[in-house]
Amino acid sequence: MKHFGLIAVAAVFASCAALAAPQGFNQSAVPSGPAGFDNQAPNTVKGVLESAYDDQVVTLKGRLTNYLGDDRYEFTDVNGDRIEVELDDDHDWSNIAKDQLIEIVGEVDKDLMSTSLEVKRAAPAKN
């Protein structure tokens, strides 16, 4: 009877270990954390245009280079790529100027045919 009890206990432990092991994953790769948390937001205009998703918050460094009308401006990053940004007229933007190196924090607005940024915060960049 003792052997039967030991065999039963060993079988229970073995089946629990087999069921707890992830199925279909590469066991040789050591995960660095939960999936989806190591994705970094793009920090260039090109990155925003290529891989950002709608409503993603991004931080870019560059200059306001052109006024497009209403509260829309052209933002040119340090690599020379351009994107349309919206500076909400309810906010005081007097701390920044045309062609001044600034850092903006904005929310991506991705439509069917265009991508722009709704600027939440802008400040002179620290070199």
Results as ranks from 00 to 15, higher is better:
L19M: 12
P22N: 14
G47H: 08
A35H: 07
L87Y: 10
K2Q: 11
A8P: 02
P34G: 06
T65H: 01
E74Q: 07
V12A: 13
I83K: 01
A97E: 06
L60H: 06
L87G: 02
M113V: 11
A18V: 12
N26Y: 13
A123N: 13
G24A: 13
I83W: 05
V108N: 00
M1Y: 10
V85Q: 00
I104S: 01
Q100D: 10
A122Y: 11
A97Y: 10
D38C: 07
R63G: 06
Q40G: 08
Q23F: 15
N26P: 06
Q40M: 08
A11H: 12
V45H: 00
G80S: 06
F4Q: 08
K61R: 14
L117F: 03
V12F: 14
V78L: 00
K2E: 12
Q40R: 12
V105Q: 03
L60Q: 01
D109E: 11
A21Q: 06
P42I: 15
A10T: 03
M1Q: 10
A122C: 04
K110L: 04
T115A: 06
V105G: 04
P42K: 11
V78Y: 04
I83C: 00
S15K: 13
V12T: 12
E86K: 11
D109S: 13
D89I: 07
Y73G: 00
K2S: 13
S51V: 09
F4T: 10
D71C: 06
L49Y: 02
K98T: 04
I7R: 10
G5R: 05
P124C: 09
G47M: 03
P124W: 14
D54L: 13
A122K: 05
Q100A: 08
D89M: 13
E103W: 12
D55K: 06
N95R: 08
F4I: 09
A97T: 14
L117G: 03
G106I: 00
I102Y: 01
G80R: 07
V85K: 00
S114A: 14
D89Y: 11
H91S: 12
S114C: 14
V119T: 01
G5P: 04
K98V: 03
F13Q: 02
N79C: 06
K46E: 05
Y73S: 02
S94C: 10
Q27Y: 14
S32F: 09
T44K: 11
D89C: 10
D54Q: 05
K120D: 00
S15P: 03
S94T: 04
D90C: 08
G106L: 00
N95E: 06
R121C: 07
A122D: 01
D92G: 08
L87R: 02
N127D: 15
D81Y: 07
F75V: 02
V9S: 10
N127H: 15
S116P: 03
F13V: 05
I96E: 00
L6A: 08
E50M: 14
S116Q: 07
D81F: 11
G80K: 14
D38Q: 07
E118V: 07
K46Q: 08
V30Q: 12
D99R: 12
K126Q: 05
S28R: 15
N127E: 15
L6K: 13
N66H: 07
D38H: 09
L87C: 01
L19I: 09
N43W: 07
